[in-house]
Design a protein around this nucleic acid. Structure first.
Lengths: 192, 192, 192, 192
DNA sequence: GATGAATGAGGATTCATTCAT
DNA sequence: AATGAATGAATCCTCATTCAT
C-alpha cells in the first residue's frame, strides 16, 4: 500500500536521472515501478508533485552520510572536514537528482516546501554548532540557528559548483573542499 | 542587438514570472512581445533557450546594482555590507526570475553555461578580494579566485533563503544580512 | 424494489441536474448515494442505463400531478386547463431532468424505449379523450389514441418552450398556457 | 478558410449519423473533413460545440423543403397538407441528425441557443398564419406569433414520434400525417 | 525578415469497470 | 450482496514548430 508510493518515488528518481524531468513520461515511471498508469494518480497529482518526496529522500541520504562519516570524538576542525567530505560525496553521487530537485521545485509552487524539507538537516547542524560553541570552540557572537543555514548553503553551493555547474577539472574537488573548509573555520571563528 | 530579440527576452521574463516556465506558451511570449509566432523562432530555438539570455540580464542587473551601491573609498567592512545589501535588493526584486532561471537551466543541458554566465560577476568579486588582500585587509592564505565564488554563493544563498524558500517574517531580512556579513568578515579574516 | 437501486436513481437525478450527464462521473453518483463504486454495477450496467429509470420516475410524477390536479366532475374545458397547468408545473420543477432524459435517451439506443415509457401516460390521455368523445363533447371524427399522443406532445412542447429553450420573460408562462389551451380546444373540436 | 468550418460541420453530420455522438471521436471528424486535428480546435472548442451549427443547417434544410413544396396559390388547407409533408419528409431523411441535435443540445449549455436557431423558421410560419388570418381563413382570436411556435412543435413532434421514438409500422406515417393535419385545421379554426 | 494559419505528434489524465476480499 | 483499491484503455487537446506567402 504505502509500498506503492515508495516504489513510485524510487522509480521516478531513476527515470528522472536517466532522461531528465522534462523528457520523462508518467508512463516511464509507472513502467519502472511496475504499477498501472492510473495508480500513479492515486498517490501523486502529477509528474512534478513527486519532486518534494524525492527531495525528502535526498535530505535523508545526506544526513545518513554525515552521521556515518563524522566522528564525534574527533577535533571540531576534523569533524568539519568530514562533514564537507560527506556533503561532497552525496552531491557527487546524486548530482543528477540534486539538479532535478532544484529544477523541479523551482518550476512549481512547491518551492516553499524547501524549508520544511530541510528542517531535519538544519536542526542537526544547529545542534552541532551549538555543542561546539558551548565547548568554547567557536566564536562567542555566533548564532547557531542562523549559521547552520549559512553553513549548509555554503557547503552545498560549493559542492554543486564542483559537480553540477562547472566544467571543472579533476583537481577542482580537492581545491574546493579545502577552500570551503578554510572559509568555514574562519567564518565560525574556530579556536585551535 | 536586435530590437525584436530584446522584446522577446523581456516579454519572456514577464510571462515566466506570471505563469511559470512550465505553463508559459510561446504564444504567450509573442503576444506580449507584439510579434508573430514564427518570428520567435528566428531568434530562439525554443522556449527554454531564452533562459540563458534572461540569466545574462540578471547578472548584469546584479553587477549594476553592486557598482551603484558599493563605495570604493569606504572601509572594506562597509563595502561588504553594501555588497550584501545590493545582492539582497536585486534578489528581492527579481526573486521569481531567479527561481525560474535556476529551474530553466537545470531542466536542460544549459546548466553548465552557468559558469560562463556568472564569469563577469566572479571576475569582479575576485578583483575586489584581491585588492583588499594586497592592501593587507584580508588573511594571507586567502585565494581570491576560489573565495570569490564561495562568497557570491554564500550571499546569494542567504538572499534566496530569505525571499524564495522561506515563510520568514519581516525581520528575517535584517537578521540574515547581519549574519552573512559577520560570517563573511570572519571567513575572509578581515583585519580591522 | 431495492432500496439501493432507488438511491442510485435519485442520486443520479440530483447529480445529472447539477453537472449534466456528460460531466457526471459514476463516482459522483455513488458518493451521493452513499454506496460503494462496485455496488453501482450490481444494479445498472452503465451511467446511461440509469436514464430510462429516471424517465419512468418522471412519467409517474407527471401522471400523479395530473391526477391530483384534474377534477373529473368539472367541465371538459376546465379539465383541459388543469391538465395544462399540471404539465407546465411538473416541467417547470423538473426542467433540467426532462432535458437530460431526452439527451440521455437520444445519446444511446434507448430512444425507442420512449414509447413504452410513455405508454401509461398515453393510455390515461386516450381514456380521457375517449370518455369526452362518448359524452359528445369532442368532434365526431376524432381518434382518441392518435390524438392523445399529439395532445401530450403539444402541451409538453409548449411547456419545454417556456422553461427550457426560451429566454422568455415572466408573463410567457401565462400566455403559452392560454394559447395551448385555446389551440387544444379548437383542435379537439370541443362543444361548449 | 470558412470553407474549413463548413467541411467540419458536414463531416461531423456524417460521422455523427454513422456512429452516434457518444462514439464519435474528434479524430473521426477531422479524418473525414480532410484537415488536421489541431485545425478542428481553431473553429470549434469541442465535439459538442459543433451541434448548434448542425442544427442551423437542419433548420435551413427544413425551410428550403417547405418553400419548395408549399404552393402559395393553393387552398390553405392544401398548403397545410404540403407543409406537413415537407416536415415529415425532412425529418424522415435526417432522423438521425435530428435525434443527435436534440441530444447534443440538451447535453450541454447550448440548449438556450434553440430559440435563436429556430427563429427563421418561426418567422416564416408566423407570416404564413398572419397572411391566412388576414384573408379571413383562420379564426379571429388567433395569435400568429404564438401559434406559429405551437404549430411547428406539433408537426415536428408528430414527425419525430413517427420516425424517431416509435417502432411504428409502415402505415403509421400516413395516419400521423392525417391526424396532425386535421388537428391543425381545427386548432387554427380554418374556414372551408 | 516577418507573418500566422495550419499542422499533428504526443502524453497527461480520466474514469468506467473489475475482482479479490 | 457489498466493497473500493487498482486498473489501463482510450482520447482529448495542447502547443511547439513549420512554411507558403
Amino acid at each position: 500500500m504505502d509500498n506503492k508510493k515508495e516504489r513510485i518515488i524510487h522509480a521516478a528518481m531513476e527515470v528522472f536521472t536517466e532522461k531528465g524531468i522534462e523528457k520523462t513520461k508518467v508512463s516511464d515511471i509507472v513502467k519502472k515501478a511496475g504499477i498501472a498508469q492510473g495508480t500513479f494518480y492515486i498517490y501523486f497529482s502529477s509528474k512534478l508533485s513527486v519532486v518534494p518526496s524525492i527531495a525528502e529522500v535526498m535530505v535523508e541520504k545526506t544526513l545518513d552520510e554525515i552521521m556515518r562519516t563524522v566522528n564525534k570524538s574527533d577535533s571540531f576542525s576534523n569533524q568539519m572536514k568530514d562533514l564537507i567530505d560527506a556533503v561532497f560525496s552525496v552531491t557527487k553521487e546524486y548530482r543528477q537528482i540534486f539538479a532535478l530537485v532544484y529544477a523541479g521545485l523551482a518550476a512549481t509552487e512547491y518551492l516553499q516546501e524547501w524549508e520544511a524539507l530541510y528542517s531535519p538537516y538544519y536542526t542537526w547542524m544547529s545542534k552541532f554548532l551549538s555543542d561546539a560553541k558551548e565547548a568554547g570552540t567557536l566564536r562567542e557572537n555566533l548564532d547557531p540557528d542562523q549559521t547552520a543555514v549559512l553553513l549548509i548553503d555554503l557547503i552545498e553551493s560549493a559542492a554543486e559548483q564542483t559537480f553540477l555547474y562547472s566544467h571543472g577539472d579533476k583537481d577542482m574537488e580537492a581545491i574546493k573542499k579545502k577552500e570551503v573548509w578554510e572559509f568555514s573555520l574562519y567564518g565560525l571563528g574556530v579556536q585551535k
